[in-house]
Simulated assay, not measured.
Amino acid sequence: MSARSVNLGGTGVSRLDPGIREYVGLRELYLHENQLTSLPDWVGDLTELRILDLSHQPLKVLPDSLGRLQQLEFLYVSDLAIGELPSSLGNLSALLYLGATDNGLTSVPESLGRLGNLLELRLYGNRLTELPDAYGDLHALRELHLDRNAIERLPATFDQLTNLRVVSLRANALMEFPVQLSRLPLLRHLDLRANHLTGLPDLPPTAFPALEKLDLRWLDLPVVPEWVHALTTRGCAVYRTAA
């Protein structure tokens, strides 16, 4: 049998039909919004897959065999019942997008720092307090979404993420302003709303050279330094809670 795409999303399946492994050249497999609680290891044999969507169901464990999907480009594993991501995901060298939101994760594998082609990483709605330093090696990354976690600080290595365009850190526990982001040449949007920051550092007027939007709402900032005013003069939209 041959098929490029199989869409079983929202069909209520609780067990994966082993007949799927007979499809030669399968590139897209949509299993979202079902009742799966586990996946068979043979999913890792679907080595032609480019898209795998497992989101929104009571899936408890992701098998290590997913790391064999060497051509996978898009992986959706949001809103599951998993306690962790397998470290084998760091083997997905072709991955462009990883969405692992709303899982209650308390940590993420250091191995994800090997995903050299990753463009977008979404980890919002978890319980993360930190990210591994190795994520500074995600040199292709353009978007990083970390809203609604408990992150206190970003790794110093993040000044190496020179392709980043969007960083969203709304509703975290940041105690320190992420100065390392101020040096990123392509960063356009930075959302720091509802963190624990009580002040902003002194930065040179050249900080955030490409920034178009800076969201500082719901922060206790009695003093706003000159570089923030310089951003506004430059045309950057700066959002602050009214005093």
Rank of each mutant, 00 (worst) to 15 (best):
S168C: 11
S168W: 01
L169P: 00
R170V: 11
R170K: 11
A171Q: 11
A171R: 09
N172I: 05
A173H: 11
L174I: 04
M175F: 10
E176N: 12
F177I: 07
P178A: 09
V179L: 11
V179Q: 13
Q180S: 12
Q180T: 12
L181W: 03
L181C: 06
S182D: 08
R183K: 13
R183H: 07
L184E: 01
L184D: 00
P185N: 04
P185H: 03
P185D: 03
L186Y: 10
L187E: 00
L187P: 00
L187G: 00
R188T: 08
H189I: 15
D191Q: 11
D191C: 02
L192P: 01
L192G: 02
R193N: 12
R193D: 12
A194W: 05
A194P: 00
N195A: 06
N195F: 01
L197I: 08
T198G: 07
G199V: 03
G199H: 14
G199Q: 10
L200I: 04
L200W: 08
D202T: 10
D202H: 09
D202K: 11
L203R: 01
L203Y: 03
P204A: 13
P204Q: 08
P204K: 09
P204S: 15
P205E: 12
T206M: 07
T206S: 15
A207G: 07
A207L: 06
A207M: 07
A207Y: 07
A207H: 04
F208H: 07
F208C: 06
P209W: 06
P209T: 09
P209Q: 12
P209E: 04
A210Y: 11
A210L: 05
L211H: 03
E212G: 10
K213Q: 13
L214E: 06
D215Q: 12
D215G: 09
R217H: 10
R217F: 07
W218T: 15
W218E: 14
D220Y: 13
L221S: 12
P225C: 05
E226V: 11
W227P: 00
W227I: 09
H229M: 13
H229L: 14
